[in-house]
Design a binder for these strands. Structure first.
Lengths: 337, 337
DNA sequence: CACACCTCTGTAAGCGTTTACAACATTGCT
DNA sequence: AGCAATGTTGTAAACGCTTACAGAGGTGTG
């Protein structure tokens, strides 16, 4: 059995209140007493029971993070940023994989609520009214990471997807490409704003997105591979392809390679996110970089700041837009003469 | 303020004991009473406080997992397996990134202990005597995921690294390669057993590992890239390279490409782990597959089973060896005539 | 010397559950 | 009618901590 605060108190010949005071060192304790208590703590190997403390303090110093799937390479970096920031502020992080399944999400929300996490960091393709309802019922502070709330109620940290996508497209256009295909994710959030951004740039330059050239896939490499293979069956081919995520760009590049088409000589490919591996594969992937680590970090910091606030509603709808950045590597080049 | 069990009891006109009984449904309650209580729960939107319950039950239904860095592509899949298994058994998972920094590890161990996690899943390059000490002091069940305890005290789940590495090497030898380089990680655990395995296969076939062909790098793509660039400065080149992780294999392939050397025409490359992306990049990477998801899953299951046990020591030193599997893709081929 | 004022410490009431134990009401026997 | 057995519920003591409040000494002042 673990020693309790009472054991320490007895051992040091003081009351539990005093022990508590030296442990949390927020109140004055005579130096001599403090020493004695610390000695007792050491001798008994005492470790305070955080559950008990949380119970009375009504603070667990634990954050919940629910996201679709940690094994999607986008998330590990976000989570790393998150966890680093949380750790630096004395918080821990409970990780939950939702698979974008609403039932699973709700289930997680409930147990996180029951375990009295102090707040939630959430990512999803789409924020529906149901989500907002669920969050309201939860009565927990929530911040969205790399997720946009169309109603603007929840605080969030993300990049300007539309603008970033437009700039990615500008890069291709700037290289001289005119016939450009895009493959976007299927969900209506980042998917659509990125698609919108691609369109913005295209029209700005008097170009259009031909019907056959607007591809949609789940956010996976495999699906992107498939739709690209389909694309290759039709002529004329585009001279460049913009993918709404690096994972999809990888699928696209695989399909091109398997179709005997060289990147970037025959077709240029640009990704989105700039996952770590983008620079290590060959041809190295040109990508619109999203600061994933910082998104996680800032989301955690925002949440923690919100927890410290006496007036949490002041964070309603606050949005932190982080800078994106084009990283040009080998996968994009001017089209062949 | 959240409603408590007392509020529900009052609302339903029963005692808190009865409410507790219907919530945990382990004791008989008259159907009529049960209904009344459930109605009260619903009306008040009552959510039990798991902290309080854990305090008296001495079970938090939370697991700690500490690993070096979630953004290393090896871990997300392990964690996913872990979390799935935990979730299926009613457990949550607190994620901790140690960066292989002992001080940080200890720090995490302490707060996990204080938050009364029920058990720990741990990964590290090396299990030292200090680790064992720390674990013993913690008095928490620990299981190692993809980590080997040389002293055989801690339960673990992993593949037979030595044998797997040997088989990877056999693949190269079987293709006809004779001059083979290896790049391994720098830590003495999987790193060394894999190196040992490579050597086993080599000597079995009367081959040796030339001095200049045994490369060491941290477990990163960048370092593998560097050491490979160095390698390329010396002649004769090997005809094949075995990397002790896919991440490193990616670095190797990048260096080869940048050095104007084709894979697999000029040099074959084989990886280890078979991370998800191995199949989507081009040339698709031949790799010795390690069932990362299952390693996580089985580690969690082992830990949970251990928690259910009345005699936890029966798990001391139990080791679960999961099957590895060679996945042949494009990056390996016979050497040029 | 009486007094106010510190500084330090202890007392005890929570925090929100679970659960051993006791109590009560029924029921079915004899 | 009396009794044991059964089924259902309540009482109250934990679980291990925090903290408001009060009390005990000590110090400096008028």
């Amino acid at each position: 059995m673990q020693p309790t605060i009472a054991d320490v108190a007895r051992h040091a010949g003081v009351s539990t209140a005093t022990v508590s005071r030296v442990i949390n060192s927020q109140s004055v304790v005579a130096p001599a007493t403090r020493e004695r208590v610390q000695a007792a703590v050491r001798e008994l190997g005492y470790q305070p029971n955080a559950l008990a403390a949380s119970l009375v303090r009504r603070r667990s110093h634990t954050l919940g993070v629910v996201l679709p799937d940690i094994s999607n390479p986008f998330f590990p970096e976000v989570v790393r940023g998150l966890e680093d920031a949380a750790h630096a502020s004395g918080y821990n992080v409970i990780l939950c994989n939702s698979d974008l399944d609403t039932a699973k999400e709700i289930e997680y929300f409930e147990v996180l609520r029951q375990k009295r996490v102090d707040g939630l960091i959430y990512h999803s393709g789409t924020i529906t009214a149901d989500h907002l309802d669920a969050f309201r019922r939860l009565k927990l502070p929530v911040v969205l990471a790399a997720t946009h709330d169309p109603r603007g109620e929840l605080p969030c940290v993300l990049v300007d997807n539309r603008q970033a996508a437009a700039e990615a497209m500008e890069h291709l256009i700037g290289l001289g490409h005119g016939r450009i295909a895009v493959v976007t994710g299927s969900d209506p959030v980042s998917g659509e704003s990125r698609l919108q951004g691609y369109r913005d740039a295209l029209t700005r330059h008097g170009l259009t997105l031909d019907d056959g050239l607007a591809l949609q896939a789940q956010w996976t490499a495999d699906e992107a591979y498939q739709v690209t293979r389909e694309l290759l069956k039709r002529r004329p081919l585009p001279t460049a392809i913009a993918a709404a995520s690096d994972l999809m760009a990888l699928g696209v590049m695989g399909a091109l390679r398997d179709g005997g088409i060289r990147v970037p000589e025959d077709v240029s490919v640009i990704g989105f996110d700039n996952i770590r591996l983008a620079g290590t594969i060959r041809p190295a992937l040109t990508s619109m970089s999203q600061p994933m680590y910082d998104i996680g970090k800032e989301a955690a910091l925002l949440l923690i700041r919100c927890l410290a606030e006496e007036e949490p509603d002041s964070f309603r709808g606050r949005r932190l837009v982080l800078p994106h950045r084009l990283v040009v590597r080998e996968s994009t080049a001017p089209p062949r003469g």
